[in-house]
Design a protein around this nucleic acid. Structure first.
Lengths: 146, 146
DNA sequence: CTGCATCCCGAAAGATACTG
DNA sequence: CAGTATCTTTCGGGATGCAG
């Protein structure tokens, strides 16, 4: 496999591809890549991580108001998942009224580092994506004209 | 906000966080980050991109057999989405039997580059995640004992 | 071989109301 | 304030059949 776009653009890419495909070829059961991708793929986890990274410690209601569109229930579910995987710490203060603070762990910060790469990429390349979508929308539109 | 874990670990992180949060604070409608994250968050897009990056040009049935667990329908849907966003090119050969080859575009390769960061990270840190999950499973187990 | 159309189900997500 | 409980709705995606 020589001369592909991948090889031409970045030698590092093929090295990392080997690393990913070598142990197990991305099989569904028990594949780390699949597993982590499923987590960060859900609707709210990444947003939560980005906000926690941006603001540091945050209380439940602070997160609830910062993450646009999330419901109380989904914030709870999301935070429980992130805590379970060790990305977020949950600190409860025995006060009245109760106070709970969430913060990224070291593992969470290292995840944030990766996710930021993707987020910045998304911002930088959104123009190209929009353009491509518009082109395909036009092409599709021609098919359906009366 | 000084002295947070984020600041201590990597100065670059805060710079990129600013970049992400500056234009619009991750609002749901029309946010590039959300948009791209939704796409790569679906069950099969990333896997398809990884396989196309690994093998170069691939035919429909080759992809179907390499991506463990995907159905014919979902492969079609996934490839259409990736093509629409400009990540994958689709080349049809007017032959009998018909042949269609898929390949990453330059934009697709640049996405692959980002995704690989995440994939390698996932492999490297899976141990910690498993450990954390086990700990929480035990903790939960105690709550439910008779 | 490629891949669209249709039907259908279970899981995920939203809305709402209630509690320590 | 910080959740939990419950109900309802949405929808991803699997199975199947058909077409170019």
């Amino acid at each position: 496999m020589e001369g592909t776009i991948v090889d031409n653009q970045s030698e590092k890419i093929s090295h990392r591809l080997e690393k990913i495909f070598t142990p197990a070829p991305l099989q569904v059961p028990g594949c780390p890549v699949r597993d982590v991708l499923d987590r960060i793929g859900d609707k709210w986890s990444i947003l939560s991580v980005l906000h926690l990274g941006h603001s540091g410690k945050l209380r439940f209601n602070e997160l609830l108001h910062r993450i646009d569109g999330i419901s109380q229930r989904m914030l709870t579910v999301t935070l429980r998942g992130l805590e379970r995987d060790g990305f977020v710490s949950r600190r409860i203060y025995a006060e009245v009224p109760p106070r709970v603070e969430y913060e990224l762990t070291a593992l969470g910060v290292s995840l944030l580092d990766q996710v930021l790469g993707l987020a910045v990429w998304a911002q930088d390349n959104m123009g190209d994506i929009i353009t491509s979508r518009a082109a395909h929308a036009n092409a599709a539109g021609f098919q359906n004209l009366p």
